[in-house]
Amino acid sequence: MEMNNQPIIQVKNLCVDIKTDEGTLTPVRGVDFEIRPGETLGLVGESGCGKSLTSKAILAINQKKCVSSGEILFRDDKEDTVDILTLDPRGKQIRDIRGRQISMIFQEPMVAFSPMYTIGNQINECTRLHITKDKKESKRITLEMMKKVGIANAEKRYDQYPHEFSGGMLQRALIAMALVCKPRLLIADEPTTALDVTIQAQILELMKELQKELGMAILFITHDLGTVAKMCDRVAVMYLGKIVETGTAREIYKNPQHPYTRGLMGSVHKIGTLKADRLFSIEGTVPLALNLGPGCGFYDRCLDRIEGVCDKADPALTCLGGEHCVACHKCRKEGV
């Protein structure tokens, strides 16, 4: 691990707006977090809460109709800090960061590769773009990484097409593509959801090993709390475009404060509990991030809501001590 414990990325008040015919949607409404070198931050939430948009905003690869605002300060390997949001999303500077400094693993490995080119070609493209133009050298680096992620018979696999790979193998190849340039930050956007359970475990194990070896930071995006527990040092829980609770993984698991986090914990099946309890489920659905009222985003679904308080103002993230912060009127009132 690096000795320098300055965060390599700081996201400050990140908002993403999408212009639609019916009005402006704001799926990400002011997100703050930071990640330190070698650390894994888990970003947890239901589908549609804005996790993916947040992660794509970091690479500035959201669609054109998505407008990001706020600050994303990234510290590269030369210790220079840039605000990614100020860069031209098609320009050279951001392209040098993508793949080289920050890279990303996608949810569905089956569609993350173009079916038209061999796996080797597509991984090697990354090497050639960022490390060396030399054909032999870059192929050597690529093959080395392919072996490292556990692709057996890498020389043969190099010339095969995506449709000749299994899902798990493709995810390994995708990881190889993301890591071949040894980035400082890896964004893993639900990297195991499309895979079988046994393969999921292998992939997670692989990511952990490689993290240790390469010393990179990981932003791990998931809706699966089990994975979070296995992978992450710290956790940020996101709801309706905002972070509602953040803390070390241990704190969040042992002592969840926000009613939403507690709901999430309740809906996980715990092995070893003797009582055949019904799984807890949170009533209702995530509202559309359009014309939201002034109150807390979770108000409609919250079991502990305080009428007259929670529907009037949106609670701010308040620290409860240590790393543990929560955005809830109730928790503040009770003065935990």
Binding site: R90, D96, R100, A112, L129, H130
Partner: peptide, 15 residues
């Protein structure tokens, strides 16, 4: 609109 375009973009490939 395909995912692999996004993946290529995330790799740093030019438009």
């Amino acid at each position: 609109g395909c995912q692999y375009v996004l993946a290529a973009r995330a790799k740093g490939v030019s438009e």
